[in-house]
């Protein structure tokens, strides 16, 4: 945790005094669900505080500003209702194609039922179908190819009974390789379509 220039400038502090007269605020960093490092910065007229430990927080009461260590229990007490209202996190599925075709592999075809169920069971579900390519070919070509793959999967989903208006497509081209490779490398695992259900 690092505090930069908090309360160092009298003029800035004065404006905080005028602005923050009747305000009470609290910001708490939560642990990342995947356990990876996480951080936020809280900036005001007096400076910036970096929060980089789970349950680290800042609190302002009137003009008093302090860094604090909150806890799971305290967050639950104060933010329980907000956290309980959190939408179900989006879920991603990855489909693969038979080499150079728009035909799904057998394993991917079998996953369609699960995907369809996920879309049907989520409240107000929306689907983003995102095509990806390997690094063979230029950027433009791959953008178009990935869009084409996404469009093909959209048709497959519609044929499987998913309402068309729920489905949006995107082509990421070669921007997001699943398996890192040099340019112009044929890599079947990079030729894929991601279905993100939210």
């Amino acid at each position: 945790m690092r505090i930069d220039s908090c309360g160092r400038w009298p003029l800035a502090a004065l404006s905080a005094l005028l602005l923050g007269g009747c305000v009470s605020e609290r910001v708490v960093l939560l642990p990342a669900p995947d356990g990876r490092p996480t951080a936020i910065t809280v900036r005001d007229s007096r400076g910036e505080v970096v929060l980089d430990q789970p349950f680290a927080g800042v609190e302002r009461r009137g003009n008093e500003f302090k860094v604090l260590k909150s806890s799971e229990a305290e967050v639950k007490a104060k933010f329980g209702a907000a956290l309980a209202a959190k939408p179900v996190p989006p879920r991603s599925f990855i489909l693969y194609f038979e080499g150079g075709s728009e035909t799904l592999t057998a394993v991917s075809a079998a996953e369609l039922a699960t995907i369809k169920r996920e879309i049907a069971e989520r409240p107000a579900s929306e689907v983003m179908v995102i095509g990806h390519t390997d690094t063979v070919g230029g950027m433009d070509t791959n953008d178009k190819l990935s869009q084409k793959r996404a469009a093909a999967v959209r048709e497959i989903l519609i044929a499987a009974g998913v309402p068309a208006q729920k489905i949006e497509t995107a082509g990421r081209g070669e921007r997001e390789l699943l398996v890192m490779s040099a340019d112009e490398v044929a890599e079947p695992r990079n030729r894929r379509v991601e279905i993100s259900v939210r």
Partner: peptide, 12 residues
């Protein structure tokens, strides 16, 4: 009074 910037995922 403040601006919160993100370098991670979850907060309140």
């Amino acid at each position: 009074t403040s601006v919160i910037g993100v370098h991670g995922t979850e907060f309140v």
